[in-house]
Nucleic acid binder design. Sequence first.
DNA 1: ACCATTTGACCAGG
DNA 2: CCTGGTCAAATGGT
Length: 352
Amino acid sequence: MAFDPDSKLSDLLAGGYHLSTRLQALFISRPLDRRGQEEAMAFSQELSRVFAASMSMLNSNAVAPEVRTGNSSGVSTPAKDKRARSDNGEVVTPSKKSREEGLTRKEITPSPHKDGYQWRKYGQKKIQNYNFSRYYFKCNRHRRCEAKKKVQQQDGGRGRLPPMFEVTYVNEHTCHELRASDDAAARMVSPWTTSRHHALAGVVDTARGGDGGGLFDLLPHIIGGGCAEENEAMVSCLAAVVSGSVPSPPPPSGWPPAPEASASDPGASFVPPAASGRSASVADDGAMMMMVVDDTGFSWDPWWSFCPVEEAAGHQLVTNRNQHHGPMHMDDAGGLADAVWPEHTCGAWRRA
DNA sequence: ACCATTTGACCAGG
DNA sequence: CCTGGTCAAATGGT
């Protein structure tokens, strides 16, 4: 073949990986002075370019197909021919369910948890014809936000292939408006300040046992952000964490890890056993993004780290009711903790 | 007592 | 009646 996109992507990502290790080395070698920050910025910007190119290639290869119900799609969807009108042409008031189905979007992704929102798990159920339970999440950014999502790990994806998840989003997010109306004071804070605040909060949160995420998941934010301030936010967070100012959370005592992580329960939070715990987070205007980097330079994402293995218990489990005790600061990292991969295969996956 | 986690059951739709 | 989706109560750890 004259042109092998997989190979090119692999080279590109290898270059990005190399850059990221140099960036880490920069933080480790010395405190960041002005010059160090400039270097870090240069690395960061180069990373942005690498990742932008990678994302572009991935998109053109249609790695993660996304469909809306109602459109033609490759994803099997139950019959959703919801008539908006009766036979005589009258408008029929749709049921709640059909209304929700009209606002349904499906996505196949290896990394179902990073979509810019915080989610609260409210149910888990074994579904017929699936080896893996389905997990139910509601938006956790605002109590009255009706956005929900279902995550279904797909069968297959064993061996060296990444586990793929079918994520079904239901309802549009209204948390933005709800939050804006709830918290007028927050609007006084500049986006940058807010972003940094969340980033720092995320570092603290991570120190107390936040969940992990993948460097890969940062791509859209690195790319989407692009501005010097956001890069600086990421750099400063990375610096704080890599320099060791933030202690690493201890690994969970048991395995599989507890399905849910919470800010107040470090022991329940998930850190992959091989991850020695360099973790950091960047913010997406309220949505926390985190990653864990181990000493080998691999970034860990809990979902990426899970090996698709049959669940021991097939019965229904429902977790984490909020019980009106305030918001739960957790991501949906939990719930799919079926197993861990014994060795790094992410490189092979991500080339695949 | 508080809070995270688990369990069992209810409900609606097909 | 079955299944998917959701909820309230129970349980357990600190």
